[in-house]
């Protein structure tokens, strides 16, 4: 599977951009397809490494005993503080553009 992705075509980059909620200009799309294609071709070297029976590492913690804190309510941001940075806020909530007709 890795070998098949030596270059990223424009349709592929558009699909990934859509997943990432990124709108790209034509020029960006062309440049990024080329650049990311080259990086993907480089990282494909990983496919040649034997990792049979090797578990994945998601996180390295030096102390496995790190406990989770108890799940109890604690004081947090006030309503006003939480909304203070919002580009648009009304009636105590965030305002978003229409998403259901």
């Amino acid at each position: 599977m890795l070998g098949s992705v030596r270059e990223m075509d424009r349709a592929q980059i558009r699909h990934v951009a859509e997943l990432a909620e990124l709108e790209l200009t034509e020029a960006e799309e062309a440049r990024l397809a080329e650049e990311i294609g080259r990086i993907v071709a480089y990282v494909a070297e990983l496919s040649a490494i034997d990792t049979s029976d090797v578990p994945p590492t998601a996180l390295v913690t030096a102390d496995a005993s790190a406990p989770l804190r108890s799940d109890e309510p604690r004081p947090g941001l006030s309503h006003e503080e939480a909304l203070a940075g919002a580009p648009r806020a009304e009636h105590g909530g965030f305002v978003v553009p229409t998403f259901v007709e």
């Binding site: 990792t51 090797v54 994945p56 590492t57």
Partner: peptide, 8 residues
């Protein structure tokens, strides 16, 4: 795959 190589 990258996470496995991270283990190595």
């Amino acid at each position: 795959k990258a996470q496995k190589v991270r283990t190595l």
